[in-house]
């Protein structure tokens, strides 16, 4: 075995031991389902900001976004403002009202706001299905990175990643995951910071790199995409992030509404740092290797061939962190949807806290293992799966969450119609007119959300209003007694 391999194994082993230790620590502080799903509502703004950023930053950022900058240059960076418009919408319209409500899951919100068990069940089922698809993409990315860098079979990387992530998640739930997310955010930034000077030094600085890239193609350093294309893609990202269940669940775990606001700001600052580092690395790799066969290989080649063994190993651990931090958030949201919203409501309403904790933990394992099979079938490329599933989630959740929290008159029939209709419209557009996006510039997510909004308003107007008692916690500034933070540390 070469010394480079030993360095990598040592770095990965130290990382896995640390996250497992945090998992065990979380296990010792987890005695109820509330501990497991919302960490006793104890998370502060710094850890919370890292949680929100780490959940959003995934394999898509390290592989897909870096590859996009490699191929098209600078202008893709402006897409981040679309994501931040989504976060701003969440901070203004979603987070305060959602956090005041002392729930455990996003389906809890749907059930309470619309006074409907059917809407709650539909929301939980949609969360489980769509996030299982999302997990497939994350596992596939881990397999592809491992086979590109080390030539090992993808299944080995997937098993290592899911075993480690499922272990710390099932042991300590949100409490462990939050502190692991904090560590993972630091590792992502460290990996990127180690890479940036290496590529810049090769060119003698930023300006010579820019001049070289401009000589390859002036669009790389200026505008590859038109403003219309940037706005259309930004809108899709914004709609997705304004009401993403795996992010909203984490609001419940923070101390209070103001903590959530600060955490969103810290998360945006972290995203700006990570996004601009990924851009510089993508540009640098284009300068170093102008004709790679696939843009998605840029990040793996950077770690394996450009950086020193130790720095390359830390960069790869940063990539693993990006994947694992997204996977743990998904496992928590899908396990919670199964255990809290389906099992405890439909199968065993008298379940004890110990039983619910056990079902949550078993669900983490089962819902983590199922996507491995899908990942091995390779139904599509990673970035495409990530983008498509997020469009579907926005198409059924944006309206019931963002408009549902702003408009009292929305009803349960309106919510069910909005979720089902938004999903169907997004699906129909994806398989028909999406192909001619270049001519009309209208994305499937915009069609899905527009249809969802139309159905929500029309059907709600035609059906009886939601009982005032259900709405008080969202619209009358009444805090739910369950929403308070219970210190345990």
């Amino acid at each position: 075995m070469s010394s480079d391999s030993l360095v990598f194994i040592a770095v990965v082993a130290a990382y896995l031991v640390t996250v497992t230790a945090i998992g065990i620590w979380g296990y010792l502080h987890t005695t109820t389902e509330e501990d497991f799903l919302v960490a006793g509502r104890s998370i502060g703004p710094w850890v919370g900001g890292c949680v929100l950023a780490a959940t959003q930053i995934s394999a898509g950022t390290f592989v897909g976004t870096l590859g996009r900058h490699y191929f098209t240059g600078v202008s893709w960076i402006w897409i981040w403002f679309g994501a931040w418009a989504g976060w701003l919408t969440s901070a203004l319209l979603v987070a305060p009202r959602l956090r005041r409500f002392g729930a455990l899951t996003v389906a809890d919100y749907i059930g309470q706001r619309f006074a409907s068990e059917r809407a709650r069940t539909l929301a939980a089922a949609l969360i489980i299905v769509s996030y299982t698809i999302y997990l497939t993409a994350q596992f596939q990315a881990s397999g592809e990175i491992a086979s590109a860098v080390f030539g090992v079979r993808p299944i080995y990387a997937m098993v290592l990643l899911i075993a480690s992530t499922a272990l710390y998640t099932l042991l300590g739930g949100v409490r462990s995951s939050s502190y692991v997310d904090f560590l993972q955010t630091m590792l992502m930034m460290l990996g990127l910071f180690l890479g940036v000077p290496v590529v810049l030094q090769t060119f003698g600085g930023l300006q010579p790199l820019g001049q070289y890239l401009e000589s390859l193609d002036p669009r790389i350093t200026a505008w590859w995409f038109s403003w219309r294309e940037i706005l259309a893609t930004s809108l899709a990202f914004g709609l997705t992030l304004a009401a993403a269940p795996y992010e909203m669940t984490r609001y419940y775990s923070m101390r209070d509404v103001q903590t959530v606001r600060y955490a969103i700001g810290i998360s945006m600052a972290i995203q700006a740092i990570i996004g601009s580092s990924v851009m510089i690395l993508g540009l640098g790799m284009r300068g170093l290797f102008p004709v790679l066969p696939s843009a998605d290989q840029a990040s793996s080649i950077l770690a394996a061939s450009v950086m020193s063994p130790l720095a390359g190993a830390l960069f790869l651990v940063g990539m693993m962190s990006a994947i694992m931090s997204t996977v743990n958030s998904i496992l928590i949201v899908t396990a919670g949807a199964f255990a809290h919203d389906l099992y405890a409501r439909l199968i065993n309403p008298r379940a004890s806290q110990q039983r619910l904790l056990l079902v949550n933990r078993v669900a983490v394992v089962v819902l983590g293992v199922v996507p491995v099979w899908f990942a091995l079938q390779r139904f599509g490329d990673v970035q495409a799966i990530v983008v498509e599933q997020s469009k579907f989630i926005a198409s059924f959740f944006f309206v019931p969450v963002v408009i549902g929290l702003s408009w009292r008159r929305g009803t349960k029939e309106g919510a069910v119609a909005a979720m089902a209709g938004g999903f169907a419209a997004c699906l129909a557009w994806t398989f028909t007119l999406q192909r001619s996006f270049a001519t009309h510039g209208i994305d499937a997510v915009e069609v899905g959300v527009a249809m969802s909004a139309l159905l929500f308003v029309v059907v709600s107007r035609l059906t009886p209003p939601t009982p005032a008692a259900n709405l008080a916690v969202f619209f009358d500034g009444v805090s739910d007694a369950r929403s308070h933070h219970t210190p345990v540390l």
Binding site: V74, F81, G210, M268, S276
Partner: peptide, 30 residues
């Protein structure tokens, strides 16, 4: 040959302004 232009540098200025404005707003909330 000028290298990077305002599509590059403009992002850093705009992002810093956006985040600073966000924190000013957040601090003024209850």
């Amino acid at each position: 040959m000028n290298g990077f232009g305002w599509s590059f540098y403009g992002f850093f200025i705009a992002a810093a302004a956006w985040i600073a404005a966000y924190f000013v707003w957040a601090a003024r909330q209850r």
